[in-house]
Design a protein around this nucleic acid. Structure first.
Lengths: 250, 250
DNA sequence: CGCTACGTTGAGAACAATCAACCCCGGTGG
DNA sequence: CCACCGGGGTTGATTGTTCTCAACGTAGCG
């Protein structure tokens, strides 16, 4: 047990600190085309680089705590982040899994409305919210990009509501696997043997199911030949067409 | 059965047409402070008025069909609108109920990702999407307001995911009634005897329940004295504190 | 080498869905 | 005028999917 860590802060290790003396991490950012920074021109990237801090977050470590002052926004650059809300008795609903390029921390209120933790060891770019807001005013193109990302997220949230409210366990799992596949593809990773870094419990909390039901449903899909469970958390979508049909409720 | 109506179009009756010859409907708009137009100054309101069409939509009539080209955006000015997505076998998930001031039609893609219908007779302001986009570029303040509305909606969507994935029937109904109460209050209506214009079936499709479960849960809350069912779709929240606790999962 | 976290599988329970009957009300047409 | 019809709501009986509780296997790690 660490002895001198400030709670929820000490684990966040700056990997590369403020931009001025170091080479800009943004210039070489490999996922910029996916991120908020896609909207930026060269000189604007400089301004972002000047206010960014690159952080490493270990597996399971918190990044955001619901209810805390919303002083930072983040951009995921590697790894996977889980975002969730809790009921007071501890029931948890994952509202999303974030991958490189995804944005995190948008808040209307003065406090975060959700919590976020690393699923696997991850790196994120952290920006002071106030400074980002100033940049948004200065560069409307960036604000437009952010609006685009927000409305994209909104569409995804509505799709997830359809899943949570109206799909059964098998349809939920099929939808989930296909979602991971599509997002991997967007990032230039293989669309078929997909990497599933999160636990059965995490998946359950994302889909409104229990660990056991997730496990049973995986087993069921496997026994029917629709998927194959490979070592190291990889899953092969052996019958993608079939999975698509199941996911749509056909 | 109407004989000459163009399908899904004929029922949309322009109440007041384009702004130029008519007195601007926007100038007297009573819910402007709640709407996108809250961000506008007098001369900017003129520009909105120039591109707006005010429509009346009868109870049950469609406003948006999922998959159709997203050529308009809307602002609700009276009544109530239901927004939903369907699975191919007909299962329906309501993604929201919209009331005066709420915005509708934001789309990243070229087509709508959801459908929308009037719950009760309603009026909406309709704007050509292209022209609104031009105004957003011209007036960044308006774009900022829209981003604020989008991130507010995103927070609401996450709250709804928590409800759909992790709350039981009683908690869902309690949350729903309190949501209606808060939104009525925001609009200057009484927060307590609330008006519930939508059917049990609509409520079920919003909460991920069946009609029967919604009805039973209402009856149950009534028998426990938590609510009172008044005539004309009004509901009294007799024990608001208790409902709050139930809704939070306490 | 044991501990813990995670995953799987089984048995039984529970909550909500399904199927069904009935009521009430408003609209329509005989 | 009134009988009929259809939609919405309520309630009951039964079913079924998922949850809960439990046991056990396995892999990683101190």
């Amino acid at each position: 047990m660490a002895t001198f860590d400030v709670k929820n802060i000490g684990h966040l290790r700056p990997a590369i600190s403020r931009g001025e003396t170091m080479p800009s991490p943004c210039a070489a950012c490999s996922i910029r085309h996916l991120s908020l920074c896609a909207a930026l021109q060269e000189n604007e990237v400089q301004e972002m680089a000047a206010i960014v801090t690159t952080l490493e977050v270990g597996a399971g470590e918190p990044l955001i705590d619901e209810g805390q002052p919303a002083v930072h926004v983040f951009n995921v650059t590697s790894g996977a982040i889980r975002v969730y809300k809790l009921l007071i008795d501890g029931r948890r609903q994952m509202t999303g899994f974030l991958f490189p390029g995804d944005f995190l921390g948008l808040a209307n209120e003065e406090t975060y409305a959700y919590s976020a933790e690393a699923v696997t060891a991850s790196t994120v770019c952290r920006f002071p919210r106030r400074k980002i807001e100033a940049l948004l005013i200065k560069y409307p193109r960036m604000e437009r990009r952010l609006l685009g990302m927000a409305s994209h997220e909104l569409a995804a949230a509505q799709e997830q509501m359809l899943l949570l409210g109206r799909k059964n366990a098998r349809e939920k799992i099929a939808s989930f696997l296909l979602m991971l596949s599509r997002r991997a593809e967007q990032r230039g990773l293989p669309a078929d043997p997909i990497f599933v870094p999160m636990s059965r419990n995490d998946i359950g909390d994302y889909l409104g199911l229990t660990t056991e039901t997730v496990s049973r449903t995986f087993s069921d899909l496997k026994s029917k030949g629709a998927i194959e469970l490979l070592p190291a958390g990889k899953v092969r979508l052996a019958q993608r067409e079939h999975l698509e049909e199941v996911a749509e409720g056909a």
